[in-house]
């Protein structure tokens, strides 16, 4: 059933002008140089330190690595991280 739903969504995205992140509830990540990273559609902070931010996603996790991290702002759906960003990793479970 779920797979079928997923397939419908994929078809819908391909055959309409709707953005993928809205339809399929995927994270939208905006990176400005190495300075900022702006993540929408996250599902909570798993761990946070000066060198690492681990976020829960709908599927799997997102890992951001770098140094001097400051969580500038955090809202239910969005997060703004400041610092020097080096890696952005998607971790599948």
């Amino acid at each position: 059933m779920r797979k079928w739903q997923h397939n419908v969504k994929k078809w819908f995205v391909n055959h309409s002008e709707m953005p993928v992140d809205v339809v399929m509830d995927l994270p939208r990540i905006t990176i400005i140089g190495q300075l900022h990273i702006y993540i929408e559609n996250h599902k909570g902070v798993l761990s946070f330190s000066n060198e690492e931010l681990r976020l829960a996603m709908k599927q799997g996790q997102l890992l951001v690595k770098g140094s001097g991290f400051v969580l500038k702002n955090i809202l239910p759906e969005e997060i703004l991280l400041e610092g020097v960003i080096k890696n952005v990793l998607f971790i599948d479970e």
């Binding site: 902070v45 798993l46 946070f48 330190s49 000066n50 400051v70 500038k72 955090i74 239910p76």
Partner: peptide, 26 residues
């Protein structure tokens, strides 16, 4: 501390400029 941040966000409590000082303190 991370669950605390998540709870704050859930309850619509504004929290910003979060920095980690050491393993147990933000």
């Amino acid at each position: 501390t991370e669950p605390f941040i998540n709870l704050c966000v859930k309850r619509n409590i504004a929290i910003w400029d979060i920095k980690r000082r050491n393993k147990t303190t933000i």
